[in-house]
Structures are given as C-alpha cells and as structure tokens.
Amino acid sequence: MFDPSIATLADLIIASGGLFIAFYLMALGHSVVEKSGILNLAIDGTFALTATLAFFMDVYYNNNLLLSFLVPAVVAMLFGLFMAFTLTKFPVSHGAVGLSLMFLMYGLASIIGYGPRIVQASLPNFSPGIALTVEERVAGYLVMLALGLLTYWLIEKTKLGVSIKASGEDPAAAESLGVNVLASRLIAAAIGFAMIGLGGAAYMNFYVRLWDERSIILSGYGWLAFAVALSGGRHPLVVLLTAFVFSILVHSSLQFVAWFNISRELSYSLPFIVAIAAMTIYMATPLRRILAPPRSLGRIYFREERTV
C-alpha cells in the first residue's frame, strides 16, 4: 500500500534518476531548438529513433556507451540541421515538416530495431545499457543542473544566444539587424537536436534498457518531453523543475497500480492527462506571459513579401 514518507520520496527520486536525465536532455534540447523559432513536432520521432539507435549500438558493439550516445546524437543533429535549413530557406510549414519527419523516424526506428532485437534474443545474458548506482544517479542530477546553467548562460548572456532569441522573436527584423538567421538556427538545431538524441540514448541506456514497440515507438514519451519543455517556458532552469516532476510522475505511475489499486492501463494514461493539464495551465495562466514562447515560433519565414 502507499506509504507517503520522505523515504519513499527519496527512493522514488533515486529510482527515476535515469528517466529524469532522459526527459531533461530532451526537453532542454527541444527548448533550444524552439527558441530559435523552429517548431519541433518531430520530437517523439527523434526520441523513438535515437533510443532505437542506442539499442542498435549496444547490441552490435557490446554496450560501448560512447558509440551508443554519439551515434544517436549525430543522427539527430543531422535531422535537426535538415529541418533548420529547409524551414529557414524556404517558406515551408514547420508543423508539416515536423510531423512528416516524425512518421519517417517511427518507420526508421521499426526497421532499425528489428535486426538487433533478433540478435539480442540469441544473447541470453545481455541487457542494453548499464544499471546506474545510487551515486551515479545523484551525479546525474548534478550534471543536468550544470548543463542547465551552461545552457542558460549561452542563451541569455552571449551574443550567440541573443542571435538565437532574435531569430525566434522576429527573423525578418533580426536579418535587418544583422543576424545571420540561418546560421543561428542551424547552430540552435545542432545543439538542440544533439541533446534530444542524447536524451533518447539516455532513456535506453539508463532507464528502460529493453526494446520493443510499446516501450519505444509507441510510448509517446517524446510528447511528454514536449509538454515538459512547454510548461517550463522553455527556460533551461525552470525545465529542470518540470522535468523533475514529470520523471517522478511517470516512474511512479507504474507504482500507482500497487499503491492505489488502479488498473495498469489507466496508469499508462496518467502521464498524458497530466501533460495535457500542464500545457493547459501554462497557456491559461500568467505563466504564458512571464515565460513567453518565442513570438515567431512556427511562423513561416519568407523574406520577399509584397508591401501594401
């Protein structure tokens, strides 16, 4: 039964460490991408693909963690660069490109995961990734905090960060002011998507450590990371908080079955209901003004407009 004590909470925090790292990396990367004005609807696809790639590397390269993190990050970065380039150079719909990449990435993930899944079946004692010790989990939290501070400094205190913000607020004005919007967005997308890729790899290596349709491609966790970023106002430090809350929630939702005697399926739906609630709260309260989204997020950027 449910025992609401500090010990339980502490256990929960430690246990969900791996998930926190994954969510935070994804949400942070997503925030950086969107700050430059690119609406990223491909996040769930990126998650599915990168987690699968990490699995692939784990199986074929015997849990070489360096490769397992590097390859997904690079692949994600390439997709990000593609998105940033086409969305800035051509008057293309961000949503349409994002969604199509999402489907494409789901498809790629299914096909890429098939091979290693079969291979893994023939390796009885193999599990992808590593089991983190308690110290490693705590270190993980601290590393994420440091990453958040670093990202905050980059975005708010440097000229590069201002260029990225400017591209997200008003790319046409930014160009007139001398910003190379394309370069800023490419950099933001490279950094952001690489982080999302690292997040997918972290999910596979530190948390779920198995590959199947349900846990990876149909999990929808990329969308949860989207909600984490949005309700945190895409602010590197506030997102630490929202990622923390969500990772605890998602991890414990499996426990709810035992604690509150609800059905397993119902517990799967809870994170999504909370995510919807979080997005609604953000949009319906002053939060939306205090931690405002970039004004030109998702807007098609087209320089040669006719004047009236």
Binding site: K159, V162, K165, A166, A173, L177, G178, R295
Partner: peptide, 17 residues
C-alpha cells in the same frame, strides 16, 4: 521600427556588431 520588442536595446544593438 525593426527593433525586436522583447529584447533589450543593448541586445538589439549587439546583433550587427
């Protein structure tokens, strides 16, 4: 005006420098 409203004057000016 082409200045970006949400940024500060300094941030706007820094962009072309």
């Amino acid at each position: 005006p082409v200045l970006i409203s949400r940024l500060t004057v300094a941030e706007n000016l820094v962009l072309g420098m």
